[in-house]
C-alpha cells in the first residue's frame, strides 16, 4: 500500500476489520473466464503483458469455479451452453461477482436468433455490464475497477439472509464518439 515507507518500522496502525477484509478481497479478485467468443480474445489481451491485469490483482485466471470470485462472461451464450454457465455460477463460492462483458453477453448482440441467450442477466445475476463489441481492454479494466470499487466502499447491499444482492450497474463509455463522416450521395442537390 506504500504505507510501509511512510510509517516507522516498528509502527502500527488501526483500522476496521471490515476494511481490511474488503481491501484484501478487492486486491485479489480472481476471475473465472467464461470466454465463449471473441470477447475472450480481448480478455486474454487484458490479462497479458501489454495491459497487465496483474496491476489490479486480477490476473489469476481460475478455471475452477471453486477458487474464483469474479465470473467474466465474455461472448455469446447459446441456450445449450446456459446450463453450464448456471452450474459454474452456482459452484462459485461467496462472495462472488459477475461481469457481463460485451454486447452479446449483455443483450445477445447481433445474434438475435432462436439459439442464443438474449442477455445472460435473464438467467443469472449480473453486477457490471461492460459495453463494446468487443470492449477494449481498458474498458474491461474499468469494469473490474467498478467491481473493486464496490468491494472497497463496502457498497454491497445484503438481503436479510446475508446474501449479496446483484447491483446491475451499466458502465458508461468513457469516451465521446467523434462525429462520423456522412456518405456523399451521387445526384443529390
Amino acid at each position: 500500500m506504500g504505507l510501509e515507507a511512510a510509517l516507522p518500522v516498528d509502527g502500527f496502525m488501526t483500522t476496521q476489520l471490515n476494511r481490511v477484509i474488503n481491501w484484501s478481497r478487492r486486491s485479489a479478485v480472481w476471475p473465472m473466464p467464461f470466454a465463449t467468443a471473441c470477447c475472450g480474445i480481448e480478455l486474454m489481451a487484458t490479462a497479458s503483458s501489454r495491459y497487465d491485469l496483474a496491476r489490479f490483482g486480477a490476473e489469476v485466471m481460475r478455471f475452477s469455479p471453486r477458487q474464483a470470485d469474479l465470473m467474466i462472461v465474455a461472448g455469446r451464450v447459446a441456450v445449450k451452453m446456459l446450463p453450464v454457465l448456471q452450474r459454474i455460477y452456482a459452484q462459485m463460492t461467496e462472495p462472488k461477482w459477475v461481469i457481463s462483458m460485451g454486447a452479446c453477453a449483455s443483450t445477445g448482440g447481433v445474434f438475435d436468433t432462436y439459439a442464443t441467450v438474449q442477455g445472460v442477466d435473464q438467467f443469472i445475476p449480473v453486477d457490471v455490464y461492460v459495453p463494446g463489441c468487443p470492449p477494449r481492454p481498458e474498458q474491461l479494466m474499468e469494469g473490474i475497477m467498478a467491481i473493486q470499487k464496490l468491494i472497497d466502499d463496502d457498497n454491497i447491499p445484503y438481503d436479510g439472509e446475508g446474501k449479496r444482492i446483484p447491483l446491475q450497474l451499466a458502465l458508461e463509455p468513457n469516451y465521446r464518439p467523434k462525429p462520423q463522416p456522412v456518405d456523399v450521395s451521387v445526384g443529390a442537390t
Binding site: V79, L82, Q86, Y89, A90, M92, Y114, A115, T116, V117, Q118, Q122, F123, I124, P125, D159, E161, K163, R164, I165, P166
Partner: peptide, 14 residues
Amino acid sequence: GERESYRVIDREES
C-alpha cells in the same frame, strides 16, 4: 420463445 424459457438462477439458490 425457446430461448426465453429456461430456469433462472438468482441469489437465493446459488
